[in-house]
């Protein structure tokens, strides 16, 4: 409420509000102005917002890219992969041998590699696409050539691309899959009832169980929650840092009342710093995708290899 008043105050004075601009860039588009209007189903508005659109885009890119590469390799009939297939194979074997197998064990590696590999490639691509100013380039083209109306689909899309994995709902959905996978993994390895019995150590005095069982059940929910917060917060954080540093340009221009001051600060401070942080972001994109998949593998492994 206070922030809103603050924002309207600023807007009324015609001033640049860095906070408002940054939040608009990193947050999802409002459900009142979605990209594509869809009807409500069971009271849930299914309209497509910016983040949903980015998710679809990532899914489409990954699907087309991977199937094309694999089909081309199969058609060529060669045993040794070349070019993009070589890179893809390197990723697949790395995920299988260095992430899944050490945690899950040899027996279950074939069962869980597909899921964890999908996680890795999907998260990596959606993280990476947030760094590429795809829609900003389209916006430039639009301003110069197309001149589409602000209400058209293109007009709404070019408000800027975002990282879908910076939305807590997206990461919560991914973590929910992990949550389900942990239960399925335990049930497949030990049987459904035994999996739940494995949660607590055996052979303790019964009063201890009154304490331990609720703690273990709460721990079940904490793990996916930690995954959710970690990924989304890390992806949002970097973007906010870059935008905050870039907004110095406008803040300084406003403070000194001249565009030259803004451009000067931009050239000396903002742009070099933003380039530096963007480079760091490239590493963050890789590391975050890796950590999510590694933790998923660790949690699945904990359900399979029970030691108490």
């Amino acid at each position: 409420m206070l922030a809103q008043e603050h924002a309207t105050e600023h807007a009324a004075a015609g001033k640049f509000d860095a906070g408002e601009t940054i939040i608009e860039h990193v947050s999802n588009s409002s459900i009142d102005h979605p990209l594509i209007h869809l009807p409500k189903v069971f009271g849930i508005d299914l309209s497509v917002t910016k983040h949903v659109f980015m998710l679809w885009l990532v899914a489409a890119i990954v699907f087309v890219l991977v199937t094309t590469i694999v089909r081309r390799y199969l058609k060529s009939g060669r045993q040794v992969p070349t070019g993009p297939m070589n890179a893809l194979e390197a990723i697949v074997t790395w995920v299988r041998d260095d992430i899944v197998q050490p945690n899950v064990g040899k027996k279950w590696v074939g069962t869980w590699t597909p899921l964890i590999l999908t996680f890795f490639i999907f998260i990596l691509c959606s993280n990476a696409i947030g760094l590429i100013p795809l829609f900003e380039v389209v916006a430039l083209l639009d301003r110069a050539i197309l001149h589409s109306s602000p209400d058209s689909f293109l007009g709404r899309v070019i408000h800027g691309g975002t990282t879908a994995t910076a939305n807590f709902n997206v990461t919560a959905a991914l973590a929910t899959i992990t949550f389900g996978a942990i239960i399925v993994a335990g049930s497949k390895a030990h049987g459904f009832v035994k999996h739940w019995m494995n949660l607590v150590p055996h052979g303790l005095a019964w009063p201890i169980y009154i304490l331990l069982i609720p703690i273990e059940i709460m721990g079940l929910f904490v793990r996916p929650f930690a995954l959710t917060m970690r990924l989304a917060a890390n992806m949002t954080g970097g973007h906010i840092a870059i935008l905050a540093i870039l907004s110095f340009v406008f803040l300084f221009a406003e403070m000194f009342g001249s565009a030259l001051a803004g451009v000067g600060v931009g050239l000396v401070v903002s742009v070099p710093l933003a380039v530096g942080i963007s480079t760091l972001e490239i590493i963050v994109v890789l590391v975050q995708a890796y950590v999510f998949t590694l933790l998923t593998a660790v949690f699945i492994g904990m359900a399979i290899n029970v030691h108490h």
Binding site: N103, G219, V222, R223, A226, M229, L295, M302
Partner: peptide, 15 residues
């Protein structure tokens, strides 16, 4: 990996 999982669970639980 397991240590990271434990530390994230610690922070995640508190949050």
């Amino acid at each position: 990996g397991p240590a990271a999982a434990a530390s994230y669970t610690l922070i995640g639980g508190i949050v």
